[in-house]
Design a protein around this nucleic acid. Sequence first.
DNA 1: CGCTGTATTGACCTCCTTCAAATGCGGTGG
DNA 2: CCACCGCATTTGAAGGAGGTCAATACAGCG
Lengths: 253, 253
Amino acid sequence: MSETLHSTLIRKLDQSGFLTDIDRATLMRLTPRSRPVAARVDLIVEGDRPEYVHVVLDGFACRYKILAGGKRQIMALLVPGDFCDLHVAILGEMDHCIGTLTPCTVAQVPRRTIEELTDHHPRINRALWWATLTDEGVLREWLANVGQREAIQQLAHLFCELHLRLLSVGLADADGYDMPLRQPDLADILGLTSVHVNRVLQELRVAGLIVLRSRRLQIPNLAGLRAYCGFNPNYLHLTPRVGEAEVTLTPGA
Amino acid sequence: MSETLHSTLIRKLDQSGFLTDIDRATLMRLTPRSRPVAARVDLIVEGDRPEYVHVVLDGFACRYKILAGGKRQIMALLVPGDFCDLHVAILGEMDHCIGTLTPCTVAQVPRRTIEELTDHHPRINRALWWATLTDEGVLREWLANVGQREAIQQLAHLFCELHLRLLSVGLADADGYDMPLRQPDLADILGLTSVHVNRVLQELRVAGLIVLRSRRLQIPNLAGLRAYCGFNPNYLHLTPRVGEAEVTLTPGA
DNA sequence: CGCTGTATTGACCTCCTTCAAATGCGGTGG
DNA sequence: CCACCGCATTTGAAGGAGGTCAATACAGCG
């Protein structure tokens, strides 16, 4: 199921709209080196200064921090195509951890290779900027989600976001996708307890907004779910063609 | 009080450690154009495609979003030296608003100038990357703050962060700084109500952790405040010299 | 000295947490 | 095919952090 570094990376960076054939050829010359990683394994921990930048080829990983008190906050979901740690190419030391949530395939690119790309290939540099800035857009939306929305709308919003992100990499279809995250993972994304996530999931089911069983999320009424949480996909900066079929933006409850 | 674009920008980007004299000379050739902006005024609103990148020279501004329901989440504080919208040079359309919180002086740099810098000046490019990635680090910490900490520790953490950030631009001293934010602003940063911020501020005062009156925040016991909220400054990626005098990292309560 | 905006207080409410136990489910071995 | 194990989900009861609404106090300022 897992794809190559080349196809994954090119599909991802092509979404920026900056690449030319020359750039794609440059990316094709990268020497892929990938490895399987089990679920719930750390790829990088806070304080590391890794020599490689990681790209997820298959599975779900996440950025997270453990705070004093032992609570975990997940600060990003990393799905196939996402860079785990472009940061370290610039900042040196990691200020958070990266771990798998499901079994993953992960590719490694030497830090020097990234530096070479940003220094000498302006359009690839811009495409990498684009990837970083869209990540930041997602992060901002998550902050708004956790800070302002009620639990039930938080969950609905997360499901809407994942739907579009997975669509853009061919891992979802119009009305659903595989949802391998467990309830405690969802809880640590949203700043809730897993108990409350459980109760709220049931509310969403009863409202007919989702069908979630055996690790598969079905969305019977996409427009309804989006309206319910006030979902506006602009922060993902996707090309218009990705799953924009019938976005109805009625202000949510 | 407001400084020039040149000195502000160079001080900021120099923190990355990437600039040479040549780069600084390049930055000196920028033609500054700055303007005063009153408090509570929008510089850019969601959906804009501005032709200028803004830099705060004086005062406090913020990134924010208004969600369906009218609630405001502040997603970043912009203090002197901070870029408001490097994003637009790459992403085109803004996915959030930027507004002043206090009276500000703001400089404008044409979008094309930024593109020219990122394309042809590798070390300035990296310095801009550094600025963006540290912003992202702050955003992650805010998410963890809002998602996992109790209100009183959230406030303490915010005060610790601001202390270091303002120290790094010469706007704080060892034991305090000017705090122009009103309680509703603090509330929208932390995902709380202003009523609750008020009550929690009093708790911090009673605990002897802060003295806050007439827009001035005093921190009588910095190590104590940091320990109280488990503050770890690593995410700011500051050079060691900035205010690291006596960071004591005892895990917070 | 009154005006305006911010800070403060009180009473009540509810969303979410906590703790602990029970249920369900996918796999495995007998 | 069934019994059993380990894991995730589900449920219940009770408590607490923070929200809501509305009134009051206060500070800076013309």
